[in-house]
């Protein structure tokens, strides 16, 4: 029974010691320790959250850059396409104009040729007429140089008239 009967002295000292320990530790140990642990946990949490935030921000920026790049590429393609179209058009226009111009020139040339040809033919006709007359004159002159022949001819002509 000695073992299970608490002695007053020990009860008193235990109470005093324990309360003393509790007060001292609460003020000088638990408050700073728990506070520091709490603060540290907070700061780790905040750090993790801000890292996550930074990651998101980074992702956003990357996406934005990609978007910009894509847009720039599209713009460039568009400009190139337009330039090509413009070039094609200019070339086409030039071709068309040259064609028209050429056709016109050819037309003028043909007209001129026709005119020249007509003029030349006229000239040739005149020359032929003149030559024919001269030749006929020369032949006639030759024919009528002797009197016999002229008589014969008149005789023939007269014969012919008699018949009629």
């Amino acid at each position: 029974m000695e073992l299970v009967s608490p002695s007053i002295g020990l009860v008193f000292w235990t109470l005093v010691t324990f309360l003393f320990l509790l007060l001292l530790l609460r003020k000088f140990a638990w408050k700073p320790i728990l506070g520091a642990i709490h603060d540290r946990e907070r700061s780790i949490e905040t750090a993790l959250a801000s890292a996550e935030h930074a990651k998101d921000e980074m992702q956003r920026l990357t996406n934005e850059n990609e978007q910009l790049l894509k847009e720039a590429r599209a713009e460039r393609d568009k400009i190139l396409k337009e330039a090509k179209e413009l070039k094609d058009q200019i070339v086409n226009d030039a071709k068309k104009q040259a064609q028209t111009e050429g056709a016109k020139l050819i037309e003028t040339a043909r007209h001129e040729i026709e005119t020249q040809k007509a003029a030349a033919l006229d000239e040739v006709k005149n020359q032929v007429a003149t030559l024919s007359l001269e030749i006929a004159e020369k032949i006639l002159r030759k024919q009528f140089e002797d009197k016999d022949k002229q008589q014969a001819l008149v005789g023939d002509l007269l014969k012919e008239v008699k018949l009629n």
Partner: peptide
């Protein structure tokens, strides 16, 4: 007391 008060001091010195 020795252990925990010294540890509390360390916590103050090495905050975070």
């Amino acid at each position: 007391l020795l252990i925990f008060i010294s540890v509390a001091g360390t916590y103050k010195k090495r905050a975070n």
